[in-house]
Design a protein around this nucleic acid. Sequence first.
DNA 1: TCTATAACCTACCAAAAAGTACGTTCCGCA
DNA 2: TGCGGAACGTACTTTTTGGTAGGTTATAGA
Lengths: 124, 124
Amino acid sequence: MAAALSVISGKWKLSIINQLLSGQKRYSEINRAIPGMTEKMLSQQIRELEEDGIVSRHIFPEVPPRVEYSLTPIGQELSSIFYTLERWGSHYMTITNDNGEVIQPDYTCYTLVKQDDEVVKESV
Amino acid sequence: MAAALSVISGKWKLSIINQLLSGQKRYSEINRAIPGMTEKMLSQQIRELEEDGIVSRHIFPEVPPRVEYSLTPIGQELSSIFYTLERWGSHYMTITNDNGEVIQPDYTCYTLVKQDDEVVKESV
DNA sequence: TCTATAACCTACCAAAAAGTACGTTCCGCA
DNA sequence: TGCGGAACGTACTTTTTGGTAGGTTATAGA
């Protein structure tokens, strides 16, 4: 489980994998598709994904160079993780508002003690 | 999806949630159950989980103090994420060995060019 | 000759996360 | 009169991660 997390944690890895889920792509395509990401980050993170066996790299010995990336079979199996994360995440966001405050009935029980001093949480 | 990840990423959060999946626990119980984690980390990360609405805190105004933590309903729904991560992770680990090298047939295609220079990867 | 392109790499810097060490409060107990 | 335990908080340092700015190679085209 920790292994799974360590493989996908990294600021841009989800985006990169997401790009590759729709098929083989070359470096510059991925780069253009993810705004805000620098080239250094792309090559760094995609290299880590490659070392972890998630993506594979095809180098075409041409000039100018051409490199295509695609997901390995086990990389493609990550889609189940994507699906689960997405489902929980969207459910979670319907329950919390933009400030990250919980909209649902107050699960937390701030003690009797604190309630005397101040208003800890207002109901929405 | 990013929201889901940000909620569970943190070196000890998975362990903490894992502890709470088996029911309500108090601070010191969790602390003893997770070796290597300092008290500061526990209080820091469990506070973040609380702010995210994943765990709830019950303070008993006694001396010595007693605080019990438990998962909120949406926290319990994380178990599906746990299950998916665990399943993929264990599958992943049967495919890679202890050094993180891929055991399966070589997905990566190190070019013709490189193969002349050196042995890039040995088959296991 | 000058410039642009692809797919990088390197050195350096800043910010975020984690770890270490110690302090706090209240009480019961020896 | 200390001592220990519960559940933290705070100051400081280290480690990890991400970002900026530049360089590289070889060739095609203006």
